[in-house]
Amino acid sequence: MAVTQPASAQQTLPPVLTDGPSSSVPTAIQIARWHMLDGDINALTFRSMDRLFTTRTVAHAGTPWRLPRADAPLDFTYNFGGKNYTSQDFLDRTYTNALLVMKDGKIVSEIYRNNSDENSRFIAWSMTKSITSLLVGCALAEGRIASLDDDIIVYLPELKGSGYAGVTIRQILQMRSGVDYEERYDFANPGIAARNHVDALVKNVARFADAARTIRRLHQPGSTFQYKTLDTAVLGWLIERVSGTSVAAYTTQKLWEPLGAEQDGFYIMDGQPGVGREFSGAGFNATLRDFARIGQMMLDGGRANGRQVVPADWVRTSTAPSTPADPKAPGLPTGYGMQWWLLNDKGAYSALGLQGQYIYVDPPSRTVVVKISYFPPGDETATAETGAFLQAVSAWTPR
């Protein structure tokens, strides 16, 4: 008797992905990108972005910056919610993929979990914003940008007539552009930000920064802090324009090679080569140690690998408060500089990325912490607990 074979079935795109222009990205890849933040798979997707996206390489140094070691057990506790927890508790309770702690320029702890290792390249998400800030500082020092108080349309005339007209580079760095772009991703009722995410990153039918061409104004420039990835995408476009090359190439030239990075980094792209741009607001990927090199360089006033990589003035300027930190919420991201979050009023600051990515720098205790996480979407408890841990690890002295 003949056996009837079941018909082959293709995955079906959710309605939000079928709206608007059709995409040449395979259906299965669009769906994988759509679910990449989900809490049951992000421990893996957050270190597999080169399998989901077109990428552009940021080449590492020929001679890496050697980070000395003084390994020690994390033998301290921290208090959260009225209870004391160990550092091992912390790893489990806050969805940690990898953790690196440096004290006074030396690695004292380096931990990999969930089948990650020293070769895993993790997505920075919005820690990328802090890297983009470093590139702006380099371009300013080179004279490619004349002044932070220049109107952005001096360099990007494509933004004439948009909400960015009359906005300075400084105001964009401080997330005070005033444009009407609420950083909210309600995909059931997508607004400008959610639609931009879908079209640029999932479907690759638009360039992320191009939303700036038609965006409207909501607030007077400089008057209101409102966090938005579009501001940083505009800064990436600025870097591209003033450097005459790609964001990845400028990152290699001005940061990654002189920093002494030991492995290549990469940016995810919002389209195919020749069309797409680096996702400069949240798309950089690197190893745990290379993220730590960024933190140590910041702690050392922009010096790394025996050379001044980023101007010391830029380190001070970009981490000075444009929005002061809340003294009642130490360890939490409440203040802001120029694409760096301020965690207290004593000088601690951090690059922060979606769902628990941290490059934390505490100058008073000479502590650097890199934490790579896979928080479930919207989990604010893990953020608060990480703040408590960061305060404790700063106060801790290895034995």
Rank of each mutant, 00 (worst) to 15 (best):
P157F: 03
Q174V: 02
E142K: 15
R316K: 13
P398Q: 11
G163C: 09
A304G: 03
A395Q: 13
A233I: 04
Y358G: 01
W237E: 11
E385K: 13
E278L: 08
A209R: 13
G337L: 01
F225A: 05
V202P: 00
T77G: 15
D151H: 07
P377V: 12
G265H: 02
D71T: 13
A28L: 15
S394A: 14
A348Y: 02
A286L: 08
W34Q: 11
V25C: 05
D180T: 04
Y227H: 00
Q88I: 11
M269C: 09
R51S: 13
T397E: 14
L17I: 08
K83A: 14
D75R: 13
F187A: 04
R303M: 07
Y336Q: 01
G306V: 04
P311K: 06
G302Y: 07
L17M: 11
N115D: 15
A325L: 04
Y112P: 00
S87W: 09
A249G: 03
S318G: 07
G178M: 08
S177Q: 10
Q171G: 11
T57H: 01
A320R: 05
T132V: 10
I169W: 05
I145Y: 01
D150K: 08
G236E: 07
F187I: 08
T55I: 12
G331R: 03
L52H: 07
P311V: 06
N42S: 14
N79Q: 15
D50C: 02
G302N: 09
D117F: 09
R69G: 02
S394P: 03
Y95R: 09
F389H: 06
L342T: 01
W341E: 00
P376L: 09
S120C: 04
F266P: 00
R366C: 06
G378I: 08
I152W: 03
A200I: 05
Q226S: 15
W314P: 01
Y374K: 05
V370R: 05
L230N: 02
L159M: 08
H60E: 10
D149E: 14
G274A: 13
R277P: 00
I153L: 05
V310Q: 02
P21V: 10
S147P: 07
L235Y: 03
T381V: 15
D40W: 12
P398L: 11
A206K: 14
W396V: 04
T4E: 13
L140I: 11
